[in-house]
Write a protein that binds this DNA or RNA. Structure first.
Lengths: 342, 342
DNA sequence: AGAATAGATTTGATCGATCAAACTACTATG
DNA sequence: CATAGTAGTTTGATCGATCAAATCTATTCT
């Protein structure tokens, strides 16, 4: 196969220099429009594409985002990460960015990967998912001046407004609150909450949503709410066991922090008790489980906007752009379904 | 932040030339071991990492594989792609390759993306998933001399042994045959098959597995088998409706081409009828559904082996390596569970 | 001893693009 | 009229690595 055309080839055909070709590509406004058209015709004629590696070498930008591919420990909810990744890839492409994957066994390994990819000039920025308390990854990235954005807010309280930490998150509080209110409006009076143990920021946030809705919509006392509140690790059988441990008749509906737990709740509680899950996974769709849907396309768009500004095609240096917003909280919405199962 | 060290910097510290440093990295054997150690010490001391863009520009290799991220139209079975991607990323990393994602709306759009990424020297090779009859993508890649491997065999009969088309696939015939034989061994006599309409190569292959097992393990006539065979689009409700259309008592077990269909079958057939699914998705695990597990790590390893040879770190030109194997069929295995549902 | 050979390392050129500065042609200004 | 200014374009240098060929050194052969 013949050598691919270069800027020089295009220039020769168009009767201009290589730099003018480069200008047509990168700063079209400074080129006389007549010349620009000649060059564009030559580009089309030769089927020219800029060589990504050469451009990256010169500009010191890779136009690539790194993102860790989670191992599928999440079970059913893995599709959330998957859908987010898809949305991110699509929208990044529109902005001229590529997505590069990596894996890591634990946070420290992940930091090692950051270092590798960063030093190799492989990526310009990282997108992190599943942040947690005192996340060492974000500390490292900030300390080493590597641009990044997280899907998930920083859960150490002080960090929420750290201008160096860009984040997008879904307002789980609002989502669970809406789900709970929906159940109350449908006639439930004692909505149980099936959540995660409280070391999870995300879980605590969703729990507050349930508690606030219950406090506002019922006359139950805090102590009574405590009895409706359960915490367990994620999983179908864990959900089932948790609901079985409740006294029958002590609750008439359940809100869960995940579809896995919700599926377990359905199995234990039977057809008469309405259940609402979280994440709107394919399973929820399959069995007719109402669930809180995270607007992942919006999250992806938000992440890119924080990194690149509303329209740009370049990663901004956040230390020099104090006016840009630093975080974004998007609202999920409840998808109501009628049960197909049991 | 200080400029990152280059080969020249390393050479200065080690007291050798830049090319020797390069040799230590790329052809360690030609460097005297004493010198090699000095250079390696300098590399460690400076924390040197080769610049990926510079290397790629010079070598004309990106050390990157492109893979399309499927939209989650697959519902429950999306996790298969996800797990494959994870295994691929991990093993590619071990071989010094990175994985770059892209999306496409249809096969022609995908071809356009191939062209873009290829011309930009962004990727060296592609990994394709979900091949189908007369796939235009593989034709294009072969015609344009772009290395690739597919997860899924080419379903046009002549193509199966095309030495230019590298492929890995899971032996669905064997998986479904094993599943069917298992049900027969457990006492079933009339195992129904819930498959896809016959324009799908994968589906046909799995159907043959069931038919062969039934022919070998029962004395049912072909006409009787026809009555146990169903075809429908994928989905839980489709599976449920298909099973409901069978006369009750006309079957005593079901094998399905997917976990989605299997879940539908369970809902329709009730607790007494054993059902086996395919893909071993998180849902199967959650509800205690037996299912055929695809060994995706093996598939990923096989894909890389076909592209790069058993140990290499470079993509081979398959036109010049007639001795390397061109495809690989891996055997899935049945995961037996006891039902947790209904 | 002198030449040939292999082993180890260095030097110059190059990959394809962009940056920075220089140049050209033409207009505006005192 | 000469000088400065500006828009548009070109030339030389550079990013960091590897390739190809040259150089140097030690060893072997006739």
């Amino acid at each position: 196969m013949a050598r691919l055309p270069t800027v020089t080839d295009v220039g020769r055909v168009a009767g201009v220099s290589r730099q003018t070709v480069s200008n047509v590509l990168n700063s079209p406004t400074i080129v006389k429009s007549e010349t620009r058209e000649k060059v564009q015709a030559a580009i089309a004629q030769l089927g020219y594409r800029p060589d990504a590696s050469a451009r990256r070498l010169r500009t010191r930008k890779s136009s690539t985002l790194g993102i860790r591919l989670d191992p599928m420990t999440n079970g059913i909810s893995g599709s959330v990460h998957d859908r987010f990744l898809h949305a991110l890839t699509e929208q990044a492409d529109e902005r001229g960015l590529r997505i590069m994957l990596f894996t890591a066994t634990d946070p420290n390994d992940e930091i090692r990967q950051f270092s590798r990819m960063r030093d190799g000039a492989d990526v310009d920025a990282f997108v992190l998912t599943s942040t947690f308390y005192d996340d060492p990854r974000t500390e490292w990235l900030i300390a080493n001046d590597v641009p990044f954005v997280t899907f998930g807010r920083p859960w150490g309280i002080d960090d929420m407004n750290d201008p160096l930490h860009l984040w997008v998150d879904v307002d789980g509080w609002s989502g669970v609150r809406e789900a709970t209110a929906h159940l109350l409006a449908e006639g439930a009076t004692r909505v149980a909450f099936l959540g995660w143990p409280s070391h999870s920021g995300t879980g605590d946030d969703r729990r507050r949503g349930w508690r606030d809705a219950m406090t506002a919509g019922t006359s139950l006392t805090p102590a009574q709410l405590d009895e409706l509140e359960m915490a367990t690790e994620d999983g179908v059988s864990q959900g089932r066991d948790a609901i079985r441990s409740l006294a029958p008749g002590s609750f008439d509906a359940v809100v869960c922090v995940s579809d896995s737990l919700a599926l377990g709740a359905i199995l234990a509680a039977g057809a008469d008790i309405p259940v609402i899950g979280y994440d709107n996974t394919p399973v929820a769709n399959a069995i007719g489980l109402s669930s809180v849907e995270q607007p992942l396309a919006e999250v992806a768009a938000g992440a890119l906007e924080l990194l690149m500004g509303p329209r740009g095609a370049e990663i901004l240096d956040r230390t020099t752009t104090p006016d840009e917003p630093k975080h974004r909280l998007v609202k999920p919405h409840l998808v109501v379904r009628t049960r197909q199962l049991s």
